[in-house]
Simulated scan of single mutants.
Amino acid sequence: MYKILVVDDSKAIREIERKYLEELGFEVLEAENGEEALKILEENPDIKLILLDWHMPVMNGYEFLLKLRSNPKWADIKVMMVTTENQQKSVIEAIMAGANEYLMKPFDKEMLEVKVKHLLEAF
């Protein structure tokens, strides 16, 4: 069973993602912002995938992604941006910063499942 970290300042979104992912058999950890997510990563080196929101207080998704990708020990972690941010410039910035996939809110379970399974095929 893979561990997935859901990083989103919305409790409702975290609950939806947790529900979908647990139904698919994954263990789910949650963080409200990028700073909290970094602490969780330090304590859980076996996380395989991060679902990451863009707009969050304290440390947003883009800032978190830059910190994540600057640390070689986290190089193999897959990152999927899950956000309402749909500007082409932002999508390109996220991919260039190291995001592996992008999922627009709102989404359904099937959309999430297809993208998560695709990202985890490498493991």
Rank of each mutant, 00 (worst) to 15 (best):
E110V: 06
N60H: 10
L52V: 13
G34N: 14
L5K: 04
Y2R: 07
Y102I: 00
K115Y: 07
E35P: 01
H118Y: 07
E32N: 11
A99H: 00
K105A: 11
L29A: 01
L68G: 03
K48V: 04
V58E: 14
I4D: 02
L51C: 08
G25F: 00
I16D: 01
F64I: 05
E101M: 09
K67I: 02
D76R: 14
E27C: 04
S70G: 08
M56Q: 11
H118E: 15
M56A: 12
P45E: 12
K67S: 13
E22F: 00
L21C: 02
D53I: 14
E15Y: 11
E85M: 05
V6W: 13
V116N: 03
N71P: 05
P106Q: 07
L103M: 08
M80L: 11
N100D: 15
L103A: 06
D53K: 14
R18N: 03
V91C: 08
L21D: 01
S70T: 12
D108L: 14
Y62Q: 04
A75W: 03
Q88N: 06
D9R: 07
K48S: 07
F64Y: 09
N33C: 02
P106H: 05
K39I: 07
P45F: 12
I47W: 00
E121I: 03
V114S: 04
L24I: 01
E22K: 01
A99R: 00
K67D: 08
V116R: 00
M1S: 11
N60Q: 04
G61S: 13
N100K: 04
K73W: 03
E30C: 05
L103D: 12
K78G: 07
K48A: 10
F123C: 10
E121A: 06
V28D: 02
K78Y: 12
K11S: 13
E121T: 06
D8Q: 07
F107V: 09
E121Q: 15
Y2M: 05
K117Y: 10
V91F: 15
V114R: 12
E15H: 10
Y102P: 07
E63M: 11
M59N: 09
E43M: 05
K105R: 14
I47N: 00
P72G: 01
L68I: 03
E93N: 15
G34P: 13
Y62H: 13
L51M: 09
M111A: 15
T84D: 10
K115G: 04
P57R: 08
V82H: 04
P72A: 05
S10I: 08
A31E: 06
Y2I: 02
R18Y: 01
E17P: 03
I13Y: 00
Y62G: 06
I92Y: 06
L120E: 15
L51N: 02
A99N: 00
M104E: 10
E36Q: 14
A94S: 04
E101D: 15
M56L: 04
E32D: 05
M1A: 12
A37W: 00
S90K: 09
